[in-house]
Design a protein around this nucleic acid. Structure first.
Length: 801
DNA sequence: TTAGGTCGGGG
DNA sequence: GTGTACGACCTAA
């Protein structure tokens, strides 16, 4: 007996049962139950395209002959498809067991008459979602029958789908996260020798917070080893039964550590939704948990360019989730000490609580965008943010291709090919007052649409084409005007869709949940549309097209040149320009005229993005500091030093940035750097500030190149300290001769008088300072010139170094 | 210069 | 699982 179900698809997987593949749609039902919907009868397939002279019937016969009983080739059909827009005859080869495709594609690829194998590298569960037009996080309806023997899957509610699956029209604009349960977790591990070793160091605490919920995390502490803690953790996860599990870098730390500890104790870490559903390591460090969406929030953080150090406390601070000054901050090497000391253990607990609360806070900030990205790209939420924008666009393109009957090109290994990029004007160095920044809206996608750019519309060299063409300036590549190509069609849909959403947003109250939903959706569409140009120039792209990317930048250069020429004719002072933005003197009426020229004559949208009351340029491109009329400081192109520099370098750079921006000149900052150098040479800077941390990622004998942290690691091993992959090595550079790596020593084995002070001056302090001061023409010489002897209290107040 | 190797986040 | 990131930065040649 079937019933009508409305369900939200969270994830898809498959199992081969009785020799037949069954697709599992992990879903939430309209009544709130979580269920697995089983789809039977969908079979793996792939295509071959043939040599021109090959006889399809003969090749089909040859294909059938490679069939194996373990997974027979059940059909070989001659089908009409498009390949790069042109009709082709192809063979569609269908088999039974998904894993057998890998074997068949090799054998079939070798057969005479076969030009190539296509679509044999698409994961089965995603293949199903593409073909059935199912997008994760969206709602669908279907008729289904409750399974008689759900125990087989180890899931309580199992339905067998008995109809086609259609989108639920009533739930297009509902918040996909509404009603889903989220679990945030974090573990702390014992690290008496600084670096924890999962083989011997137990997990000491685990914190869990669920949403919806009180907001106060549950904290489980280890008592006499961590076996009970791990069991309690598994029970807690099962009890909370979350749809989404979030953590921060849990894919590389918490899960692997838990998995290793569970293995040692012989505990089954079955935190998934099906029986025995343990975390599974999959592609490039991702970990999947059956029936739940395991989302690492670090993946979202990696996309925030403004935050250079992606630690949880920094990112939570930046996102307004938890200010750094309002939380407990411990350095990682202090964890063991705080655990061992009963008087300090409470602080460790608070530290864990703050980490868990921050993690949940970040989840609530990030997941709405992730859910939209999932709904639009078609990738499940646990994969979509792990994937680069190129992959996200590509999965959507594969869906567009399927609908058009286009065959998906295979991924190919390609050597580097360079081409000319965008125009970046030489900035006029100095300080400029009242500057407007004009931006072309979605310049590259609009170029692609206007000139019908794409691999399928490109006229290849030597190709005869009589029809009308768009010719790219400078490079001369030609694109058919008609019919609209694959990229043009797809991008037009994106641009139109986004426009409709923007229109709907105007009619929606700004503080409503619906507004937020629409805003995240339009952002996700924008990300995909803007990725299209970069995608065509990405060497691993299935629809790679160097000429296309080259043509797009050529049209872009042409466009901005025309705008610059017009701006100058109008009497505007053009200060700087990069790709699709122009910095001009802020003269509203002339800018108005420029905008109407660009819109009317050139046919592109341009708008005033911001106005700076002051902006500093040096001769360096892509780097400037601006003060907006709202009083905000924009530092663009300035790269803060990475997490693996010494604290001294990081502190120096932060202070230099602050002094320059606050005083508007460099003299104070230069004096400050000179004082830091002087203090270094006098040996009054604490050695802790000089430690550089780097991680060992493999066994020492596997390293091909000598590096400082490897040398330091070898010294540690000699003195009996265990060093394994994952260990972070803290080292300092000591005096002596020879390459840098010979002079690295573990920080706890070095004496302050051994420190190679000049290394820290030349390779740490000065480069860090010059990242900023260099833009203002300050040289290494000037910083080393040893200036006025002044008290550091002038800069730091009571802060000590 | 280029080529080729390593790393991030976590504790 | 019909598969395997990416971009910045380092050292060595």
């Amino acid at each position: 007996m079937t019933e009508e179900l409305s369900f939200q698809v969270l994830d898809a997987s498959y199992e081969v049962i009785g020799g037949e593949p069954k697709v599992l749609l992990w879903s939430r039902l309209h009544d709130g139950r979580r269920a697995a919907l089983i789809y039977e009868g969908f079979r793996p397939y792939f295509y071959v395209i043939l040599e021109d002279e090959a006889d399809p019937g003969l090749v089909a016969e040859a294909v059938k002959r490679v069939s194996k009983p373990s997974s027979p080739i059940v059909s070989v059909d001659v089908v009409e498809r498009l390949y790069y827009g042109s009709p082709v005859k192809a063979l569609k080869i269908t088999t039974v067991v998904p894993a057998s495709v890998r074997v068949y594609r090799e054998e079939v690829g070798e057969l005479p008459g076969v030009r190539g194998v296509l679509e044999a590298d698409i994961r089965f569960a995603l293949r199903f979602l593409i073909d059935k037009n199912i997008y994760p996080m969206r709602w669908y309806v279907a008729r289904a029958e409750k399974a008689q023997n759900p125990g087989y899957y180890g899931i309580r509610d199992v339905y067998i789908v008995k109809s086609e699956i259609e989108e639920d029209p009533g739930k297009v604009n509902v918040d996909p996260l509404e009603g889903l349960r989220i679990l945030a977790f974090d573990i702390e591990v014992y690290n008496p020798r600084k670096t924890p070793d999962p083989k011997r160091d137990p997990i000491i605490m685990v914190g869990l917070s669920s949403y919806p919920g009180s907001g106060e995390p549950t904290i489980i502490e280890a008592e006499g080893g961590d076996a009970r803690l791990i069991r309690a953790f598994v029970e807690e996860v099962k009890k909370l039964d979350p749809d989404i599990i979030v953590g921060y870098n849990q894919n590389r730390f918490d899960w692997p550590y838990l998995m290793e500890r569970a293995k040692i104790h012989g505990i089954t870490l079955d935190v998934g939704r099906k029986r025995g559903g343990t975390p599974q390591s999959s592609a490039y460090g991702h970990i999947s948990i059956p029936g739940r969406l395991n989302v690492d929030l670090l993946d979202f953080a990696m996309e925030i360019g403004e935050v250079k150090v992606k630690s949880l406390d920094e990112v939570a601070d930046y996102m307004g989730v938890m200010p750094k000054e309002k939380r407990v901050l411990l350095e990682w090497w202090q964890i063991g000490e705080y655990w061992a000391d009963p008087g300090k253990r409470r602080i460790l607990r608070d530290y864990l609580r703050d980490d868990v609360v921050s993690t949940m806070g970040l989840a609530l900030k990030f997941l709405p965008f992730g859910a939209q990205m999932s709904q639009i790209s078609g990738l499940p939420l646990d994969q979509v943010m792990t994937a680069s924008v190129g992959y996200r666009l590509e999965w959507r393109l594969m869906r567009e291709a399927y609908k058009r009957g286009e065959l998906v090109p295979s991924r190919e290994e390609r050597g580097e090919e360079t081409y000319e990029g965008a125009i970046v004007l030489e900035p006029k160095p100095g300080i400029h007052g009242n500057v407007a920044v004009l931006d072309f809206a979605s310049m590259y996608p609009n170029i692609m649409v206007k000139y019908n750019v794409g691999p399928d519309t490109l006229i290849k060299p030597g190709e005869d084409y009589e029809g009308e063409v768009n010719i790219a300036p400078e490079v001369g590549h030609k694109f058919r005007v008609d019919p609209p190509g694959f990229f043009k069609k797809t991008l037009e849909r994106f641009l139109k869709w986004r426009k409709e959403i923007k229109k709907a947003m105007e009619k929606t109250p700004k503080d409503s949940p619906e507004y937020r939903l629409l805003d995240e959706r339009q952002k996700a569409i924008k990300v995909l549309a803007n990725a299209s140009y970069g995608y065509m120039g990405w060497l691993s792209a299935r629809w790679y097209c160097r000429e296309c990317a080259e043509a797009v930048t050529a049209w872009g250069r042409n466009l901005i040149k025309s705008a610059i020429k017009k701006a100058r004719e109008l009497g505007l002072n053009v200060i700087y320009g990069d790709t699709d933005s122009l910095f001009v003197s802020y003269e509203p009426s002339k800018i108005e005229a420029l905008i109407s020229y660009v819109e009317g004559e050139l046919g592109f949208d341009i708008k005033v993005d911001k106005v700076y009351s002051k902006v500093f340029f040096t001769e360096a491109k892509k780097r400037y500091v601006g003060l907006t009329i709202e009083g905000k400081i924009d530092v663009v192109g300035f790269e803060a030093v990475r997490g693996d520099w010494s604290d001294l370098a990081k502190d120096t750079q932060a202070t230099v940035a602050e002094l320059v921006l606050k005083t508007g000149c460099t003299s104070k900052a230069v004096e400050y750097v000179r004082d830091v150098i002087r203090m270094l040479r006098e040996g009054v800077i604490n050695m802790d500030k000089l430690v550089i941390w780097k991680t060992i990622t493999r066994r020492l004998e596997e390293y091909k190149a000598e590096q400082p942290h490897i040398t330091a690691a070898r010294v540690m091993i000699k003195s009996g300290i265990r060093v394994e992959p994952g260990v972070k090595i803290g080292y300092v550079i000591t005096k002596g001769s020879g390459p840098l790596y010979t002079r690295a020593k573990p920080y706890f084995m070095a004496n302050p008088e051994d420190i190679d002070v000049e290394y820290y001056v030349d390779k740490q302090v000065i480069p860090a300072a010059l990242r900023i001061l260099g833009y203002f023409g300050i040289t290494e010489k000037q910083l080393k010139a040893g200036g006025a002897q002044r008290s550091l209290l002038d800069y730091f107040g009571k802060k000590t170094m």
